[in-house]
Design a protein around this nucleic acid. Structure first.
Lengths: 207, 207
DNA sequence: CCCGACACCTAACAAGTGTTAGGTAGGTAA
DNA sequence: TTACCTACCTAACACTTGTTAGGTGTCGGG
């Protein structure tokens, strides 16, 4: 049966083929709407065959969730590392937002899947994803507190809470972002300005 | 069968009893995880009986989604209307955030349900909810553009985009907010300060 | 040539899904 | 009393779900 290679639209097969197909479907349709038979068809195989590579559906989900976080984490880490050690706070903050948004919006079926389905999966799966998630959060907290020590961020800003605000706003872009109406990097820069400077005009009637 | 009134924990019965039970479950477990039999049991009736009040499961969902948006819209509108016409921009903005967050986090099984499941429901149901959703968005856009005309918001702020950023950040609080660690109003004020002033320190090394 | 190992398939399983048809108890009105 | 309406219940329908057991073809190594 080596002739039926180019089934459907997915050239990749095997373990990674299943994961790729599943991530794509989950990111688009959500956890509950995607069945193993859908994943199998998208990957070009039959439902039962999935169990040769994975022990259960939750097994697939777990792996996708972890890979999703890891992808953003890596992207952000690399972009920040590429800056010189004494880069201005503005540039560091921009790099974080650019990395997160690009990983989420441009590449990253896994990242999209994570943001979309994390709130829908059974508790067991969610818990399995927490360590990777916590690692990324800790990374961001460290980065932000460095900026605070440098006196670039106001001292009255509650950092863990701001991190939640930030990630929430960034992940929400997934619901409406349209790559044809502007790049993810431009959006990131715009968001960065808003977070850094606020929306209040300096000259206004502000008490 | 008038004696089996106080079944389970739900005193309300009939149409609104079903809606209340469904909203509570949907807000906690998500769309895919909640079945009609679960809703029925929580409402103290049997699954088939639901079809006396509703034509389908999607019918229930649609009604809950609409009520969820309407609740936030009303709360925000009332709080803003309670201010004097020439109230400072800061206060108007605070009122918006307080209204939205209180409706979402304190009262409002319907609101929580909306935020949680909107991304998971079938397209037909989502489309049915769009008009109410658009009305709230238009209301916010009007409010923000008034503040801009008053020269309280910087002229280079892209308002529709900022509204998306704002709502995204507010709705995301649902995932982590814990009422025992602080009130929704305090959180709203904190968020308002961040959005209005930004996080950048004035004295810093900012180019 | 034979032997496994690999990567898949077929067919079925029990359980759960939304949904429907038809029945029934209790109250109201004539 | 009779008739009717409301608000439920029972029992089943066709279907989908995750999962499993056992079978099949292909391929490289001995």
């Amino acid at each position: 049966m080596a002739l039926s290679k180019t089934v459907a639209q997915n050239a990749e097969v095997g373990r990674t083929g299943i994961l790729d197909a599943a991530a794509l479907l989950l990111g688009r349709q959500g956890y509950g709407a995607v069945s193993l038979r859908m994943i199998a068809e998208a990957a070009g195989i039959k439902a039962g065959s999935i169990y040769y590579h994975f022990a259960s559906k939750d097994d697939i989900i777990t792996e996708i969730l972890d890979a999703g976080i890891q992808a953003v984490h890596d992207e952000v880490r690399d972009r920040v590392a590429a800056l010189s050690a004494d880069a201005p706070a503005r540039d560091v903050f921009r790099a974080v937002l650019r990395g997160h948004l690009c990983a989420l919006l441009e590449h990253g079926a896994y990242t999209s899947a994570n943001v979309r389905i994390f709130g829908q999966v059974p508790p067991v799966v969610r818990d399995a994803n927490l360590p990777v998630r916590r690692a990324y959060e800790a990374f961001l907290d460290n980065l932000l507190s460095e900026l605070k020590v440098r006196d670039a961020i106001r001292s009255d800003v509650n950092l863990p809470r701001f991190r939640l605000l930030l990630i929430g706003a960034l992940n929400a872009t997934l619901e409406w972002f349209d790559p044809q109406k502007g790049s993810a990097e431009d959006l990131a820069d715009d968001y960065a300005d808003t977070f850094l400077n606020g929306i209040l005009s300096q000259s206004g009637d502000n008490t």
